[in-house]
Simulated assay, not measured.
Amino acid sequence: MKLSDFDFDLPDDLIATRPVKPRSAAKLLVAEGDRISDAVVTDLVRWLRPGDRLVLNDTKVIPARLFGERFRDGETGRTSSKMEVTLLEPKADGTWQALIKPLRKIREGEMIVFSDALSAVLTAKADGQAKLAFNCEGDAFDEALAEVGRMPLPPYIAAKRPADLQDHQDYQTVWAQNTGAVAAPTASLHFDDALLDLLKQRGVEMTHVTLHVGAGTFLPVKVEDVTTHKMHAEWGQITEKAASEIAATKAAGGRIIPVGTTALRLIETAARDGGGAIQPWVGKTDIFIYPGFQFAVTDALMTNFHLPQSTLLMLVSALMGQERVKKIYDHAVQNRYRFFSYGDASLLFPDKNEHELKTTSDLSST
């Protein structure tokens, strides 16, 4: 299985740099086996049945991009160097793994000042990454970070524009709760309160799980034989309540539909460790899903459109089949769907889906 098998041509102007307003007005490509339909996200109620269960990732993105200065006293006086820091993940000892630009201009033991309330000392650097010890922790750290930090937009957006205050709202789900992600579960960004109400009226159930999405989600695959690729590990948790809800839905004949690849990877990790059955789970997962993977829990998937040659595209191909995914992405490009984190969405059923063609107005009046 070659990396080139997962390549496709994507016009640059289809890469979204802002989400549509309202969130649920984004386009939705629905693939039911080999059948493709064009819709909008609000139309989810047409394809989901009473008793289906959406699995939602409730991780909360931190404003992980920081800009500060390193000061150094020397023979010629005091000098400074501007530093850009992207936090990656907290460590057990209270420090943070981070990327620093330019890393070569700071030594171990030196401090970066971000504001009067927030600074950090470089305690170690290796393999192009740094370890930072901040001057505060807990609520004080969260408050200081919220004051000066910017949302860590994906590289393909950050290359076109800087993050701004609007991204603090746009790059966060409406149900975000557990702080720890440095990238958003982007399929979930399409949901707003109005859509959630419609789904509840439809009888669609929802379960929250947590997977803290790491910056590694944007790392390219560098091996030609994709089966030898090593995934980054991300921390996740499925509570006993969440596992029970998912198991009950499966037992009753309902469908489990994760919203986003992060939720899918987490529930499939728990099922794999549980011998094929969903169970409470906590820890780090580095599960790599590519064609040939046997899904234990997932019946369908809602997800955005992913980068060429990415592990996320491989995951979608594992669920739908490589040839189907090529047709889906050809259709998306030809019909000018918007791609990546702020782009449009897809709803993917591996098999033919017999759905009721109820309109949104029908449902809102029931």
Rank of each mutant, 00 (worst) to 15 (best):
F191Q: 05
L118K: 07
K160R: 14
N135L: 03
G74I: 03
V113H: 12
A176T: 00
G94I: 09
P90M: 03
E75D: 14
S81T: 13
S119E: 08
H212S: 07
L196K: 12
T86M: 15
D116I: 03
L145V: 07
M206G: 08
M83E: 09
A126H: 10
L153I: 07
Q201M: 15
D197Q: 14
L103G: 05
A126V: 11
T123W: 03
S188K: 00
P152M: 01
D197A: 15
T179Y: 09
A117L: 12
A120E: 04
K160T: 01
E205K: 15
K105D: 08
A126P: 00
A183H: 04
D139Q: 09
A187Q: 00
G180L: 02
S80Y: 13
T79M: 09
M151S: 06
E108R: 13
C136G: 04
F114M: 10
L211S: 06
G109D: 02
L196S: 11
P155V: 02
V209T: 06
K105S: 13
E108G: 05
A130P: 10
A194T: 14
I112K: 11
T186N: 02
V209C: 06
A176E: 01
R202L: 14
T123Y: 04
F114A: 12
L145F: 04
A144D: 09
I100G: 02
I157V: 13
G180T: 05
V204W: 09
D197Y: 06
H212R: 13
T207F: 07
P162S: 11
Q172H: 03
E205R: 14
L88N: 09
G203C: 11
P155K: 08
Q172R: 01
A92T: 14
P162L: 02
D192W: 04
A159T: 07
S115I: 00
G77T: 07
D93K: 14
P185T: 02
V213D: 06
D170F: 00
A183R: 01
P152E: 00
L195E: 00
V182P: 11
L165G: 08
L196V: 11
A159H: 07
I157F: 01
Q169M: 01
D164T: 11
T79I: 13
L165R: 07
P162K: 04
Q172W: 00
